[in-house]
Design a binder for these strands. Structure first.
Lengths: 251, 251
DNA sequence: AATATTGACTAACAAATGTGAAAGCCGAGC
DNA sequence: GCTCGGCTTTCACATTTGTTAGTCAATATT
């Protein structure tokens, strides 16, 4: 739960009461083993899942089996508030690594967001950031080269992990295989391997299948044409704490 | 406004009063010429735009100019309800063809959705469908071949146009250039040209830059691995009108 | 200890896609 | 009817990426 609060506080400041309400949102965490589905396409889930630990993915498959990863969930991410409107899941969610999730019922969410509008807004914000990320991915897939795309993915994971205190000394735990990276970037495994070697040769990263190290964060971001704006962090807070009137922002 | 109501009624049935409320949402339409931005990245818009006629696009660019189209707006589509939470646009919206838009202020939207929850839900639904579409695009970009991707795009536009009565005899007005298709599919113009010829040779489509004709809709959908489920049409209504109890849907 | 299994990495070749430039087409305006 | 400019189409070639198949090291299984 900590991670959720930490993440949302990049958007807004909570009162102690709100923090307590967030902390009481769900029951005990459930463990999910790697590669296991959490929600499957076609399901009609009755609650949302909060990732407490590990990496989960959103993915979608073609009828002939080709599979595309659509996004990553880290600790503190919530899957699918949207579930309350759409009837059927149009994609699946699965654990990538061992994952701990907490299930939160629809009624629980409703009760708390009704009572604390700020929490409601913060959850909305989180959902919209996720959308923004998927737009950036679309840009990546269409316009970035394979290496830029991979680099960009690493930048994103690194930044998002940092927001929930999962980074230490430019290192993030990232226990995944090259086939996962292939399904993420739309490349073949062989090419993923080539691209990784390229990034290593350039001195930008180290990655051994367990830990990702950004050897040269600035260089990597430049190479990836990474602009963190799309993560919408500290945006609202920045607005509130600014001492400039609106006119100062015109331009 | 008609188109909006027609679209939303694929999700739910409105009362006459609700229909009137929707019809009174906005002021007179404004014309935007082709290729002109409607909202630019970095802006903080104060209302939403309803497309009344023509095609608009959502797009995003890299700092070096490479540009990716992220989605299409047809008549009846609303750009960016999310604007109420996020401060800054992380992408742009532009007219692709001559476009008529109606601007709806935040307060107007709020007033009506507060009063008519069903309208609120319907607008939410439209937003979520848009999201679902961008997930499908991600799948397309990552896993479908160039030709499949193009075919899938045509299927999507065709279906969406049909929902707002823009299709006649397997034909849709689609006045766009091959460079537009290139920016949509992440291909070069030359390759777009090759792919179009391929689809024509297969007898699936005719396209002259003004009108798209599906010569063999079923064949095209099969070729594109198109599954309309992701458009979430008639989903809610289907649920309501079904005479079967929930248990009948299990398994 | 012997034997699978899994995942990373290589290699050689094939297919898909991009590039730059030229040629053709066609409607708008003269 | 001519001309210009914007698109489309073609061409020849370069580059990127995929495929198939193998090796190797580490790890799990028997």
């Amino acid at each position: 739960m900590d991670a959720l609060i930490r993440k949302l506080e990049h958007f807004t400041q909570f009162t102690d009461e709100e923090r307590k309400a967030l902390a009481s949102l769900s029951d005990l965490p459930v463990m999910v083993s790697p590669r296991q589905d959490i929600i499957r396409e076609g399901d009609n889930p009755t609650g949302v899942n909060l990732i407490v630990e590990g990496y989960a993915i959103r993915y979608k498959a073609l009828s002939d089996g080709r599979r595309q990863i659509l996004g990553y969930f880290l600790a503190g991410d919530i899957c699918d508030l949207r579930v309350f409107v759409l009837k059927r899941m149009d994609h699946s969610i699965a654990a990538l690594t061992p994952v701990a999730v907490r299930v939160i019922s629809e009624s629980r969410i409703m009760a708390i967001t009704d009572r604390y509008p700020r929490i409601m807004r913060a959850l909305w914000w989180a959902t919209l950031v996720e959308e923004s990320i998927s737009r950036e991915w679309l840009l990546s897939m269409g316009q970035r080269t394979a290496a830029e795309r991979m680099a960009h993915l690493f930048c994103e994971i690194y930044h998002r992990a940092r927001f929930v205190d999962l980074v230490e000394g430019h290192k993030v735990a990232l226990p995944l295989r090259q086939t996962d990276l292939a399904e993420t970037t739309g490349l073949s495994v062989v090419h993923v391997n080539r691209v990784l070697q390229d990034l290593r040769k350039r001195g930008l990263i180290a990655f051994d299948g367990q830990v990702l190290t950004l050897l040269d964060p600035d260089g990597l971001e430049e190479f990836a044409l990474f602009d963190p704006l799309y993560l919408h962090m500290d945006e609202d807070k920045a607005m509130i704490t600014t001492t400039q009137p609106i006119t100062a922002r015109a331009g």
